[in-house]
Design a protein around this nucleic acid. Structure first.
Lengths: 349, 349
DNA sequence: GATCTTTTTTGGACCGATCCAATTTTTTTC
DNA sequence: GAAAAAAATTGGATCGGTCCAAAAAAGATC
């Protein structure tokens, strides 16, 4: 397989000149240039090998998204919330003409198969971080990287959506509609069966999956406290995002709630559907509010009131930070409450 | 910034030994290994630079999807049909633990910014090819690559969905339901205003956007011919996939059709909606059939009968071919007719 | 046409590793 | 304890280029 040096030899010029023909064509006189080009054609040489060039250049023109620890490429793309995030990143890539790579963290991967350790990119974006050690490989590579919705200290760039504000707005919205009897559907991030939390016991610790979930829980707590409700008295279920029973569980656990606060969109949609299956009208008999806005939320019937956690903007901002490089920066994005049809005034008993 | 050689020096061993510590740890005795590891820690050396290692290894453990010529990364991901394809590719990546890169073909891109020419990947998958020259950069790089739904000759691996069979099944389905008066909504792939094709004129050439569209047209032609219908007598509109007026246009152009054959899902859904807006019941008054099965088709009301063009399988197959390497292969995937609610028996006048 | 500029071209060093044959060290065998 | 076998270590070559200062060629000036 022809190399630059072969082309140079064939054309009777030095490597440098041949190199220039491909990189700074107008630095070499037409006559020589043509000779080199002819030689290249002759030998089927398609231009400098990107791999080799890389060694010196140091830039690849690509960034990587690292999916959460337990997700592969397809899991990331299938997840409606994450796929919005990916979309945001991809927009930023298009802005600067960069390529986008998805690099799952394969913990066991040795040698070339170890994701982050070997990915040939200019920087990383972490889709979700649960432990600091997950970002260690990126730190060691000394490439720019950004974490999302996670506090990794002042020295690591981050983009965060103010989950507290979002969840607070959601709870406040329901309170303003007159609701006083709630149910909370929270996340369980450790694999396992859903948990129903007994009413009346403090449970800050158990209620917490990720830090971001804790923030939401705090927001609920604070908003409810303002109208004299102790969150510990609010029935709560904690379940995985994909747990199909969770909707029924929270409806069972909070039988006389007039409103459900869900930390997940998909679960919120499931609650709407399950409530209707049980003969309760939404929002007349029950208001439901979710967190995150995906296409399915709008299609829900009635359309779901939810918090837009600005996934696209978050992705775009994160990618821009990586492209910009420079000293660590921290961006905070304000979520937006999207009021649709699944919430309404509390029915007076 | 520390290099392998610095670590070696600091530990008082040769480069080779240091290299082995990171690549074949059990080939070097514990004593030395520890010394090297200590030195590495001391110097903040995180292991061999992937870029440099690449030069020798030749493998990156990543493949690239090249979006159609006019699409960037985000356009690809936003497109519901293509995103299924991407999903299929991503599944194959997960199977072998590879990374997935999206590399738009930036025609003007010089140097590091030229997509395919510089992407550091092991192979390419072309999402859609319209001209042979689009795949030229990949060919020159001598990396394995696969084209999809395009015939680039026997020497270039391809995965194709039998569009003829799919479209034929669609037309046959309507014919079997008793329909005899049709309208056809076809693709316009060159930018421009939608075209209404006059009835009674031969139009094979004009009807054709991509080869794949031509196949569908041929299939319609053949299926209709079997019941004595000349396709040239069937009203036809040709429009871009995103043209919002197309649905109205075909309904206007084929006012007494009882069934519409659409080459696009999104357009088919639009037709269903537009027909209902005009007071026609689907499928009682009008049957509509699409091509490609995306989530939105199922949510359509009534759910859309359409051809599942097996986008996921197509992507998976293409990626597997790239990973497998070896001599060119050609796979053909059979589409499936998905019968839902938007088609029904022709109403007897 | 000789001298001074400017433009081209060139060879050496380097980018950061891996590979392999040869050498050195350690272990085994008798 | 010497010889043979096995294991560990090493230096040189290589992967395929780019960069830069110096040399050569071309062009300008008088």
């Amino acid at each position: 397989m022809a190399r630059l040096i072969d082309v140079a030899k064939a054309a009777g010029v030095s490597r440098s000149t041949a190199s220039n023909v491909f990189n700074n064509p107008d630095m070499v006189r037409p006559k020589l240039r043509q000779r080199v080009e002819a030689a290249a054609r002759e030998l089927g040489y398609a231009g400098p090998d990107p791999t080799a060039r890389l060694l010196r250049a140091g830039k690849v023109n690509a960034i990587a998204i690292v999916p959460p620890a337990d997700m592969g490429v397809s899991a990331l793309l299938r997840n409606p919330v994450f796929s919005l995030f990916v979309l945001g990143v991809s927009e930023a890539c298009d802005e600067v003409g960069a390529n986008l790579m998805i690099v799952p963290d394969k913990p066991g991967g040795k040698g070339i198969n170890n994701g982050m350790k070997n990915a040939v990119v200019d920087g990383f974006i972490f889709g979700r971080v649960e432990h600091l050690h997950e970002i260690e490989p990126a730190r060691l590579r000394r490439l720019p990287f950004v974490v999302v919705d996670f506090d990794a200290g002042p020295h690591i760039s981050s983009v965060r959506v103010d989950a507290y504000a979002g969840a607070y707005a959601a709870a406040k919205h329901l309170i303003d509609l007159g609701h006083r009897r709630f149910g909370i559907l929270s996340f369980l991030r450790t694999f396992g069966p859903a948990r129903v939390h007994p009413v009346g016991k403090p449970r800050a610790a158990e209620a917490s999956g990720l830090p971001i979930d804790q923030e939401k829980y705090r927001a609920y707590t604070d908003a409810l406290a303002e109208v004299g409700i102790d969150v510990a008295e609010v029935p709560m279920v904690q379940a995985e995002a994909w747990d199909r029973d969770a909707a029924g569980m929270i409806l069972d656990a909070a039988p006389d709630a007039t409103a459900i606060l869900s930390m997940s969109v998909m679960q919120a949609i499931a609650i709407v559907e399950e409530a209707q299956r049980r003969g309760r009208l939404v929002p007349r008999d029950l208001s439901v509010i979710g967190y995150n806005d995906i296409a399915a939320a709008e299609r829900c019937n009635p359309p779901l009131t939810t918090v837009d956690a600005m996934g696209i903007d978050k992705g775009r901002a994160a990618a821009r930070l990586v492209f910009a490089g420079g000293p660590p920066r921290h961006e905070i994005i304000e979520p937006r409450l999207i009021i649709r049809g699944s919430t309404g005034p509390a029915r007076t008993r």
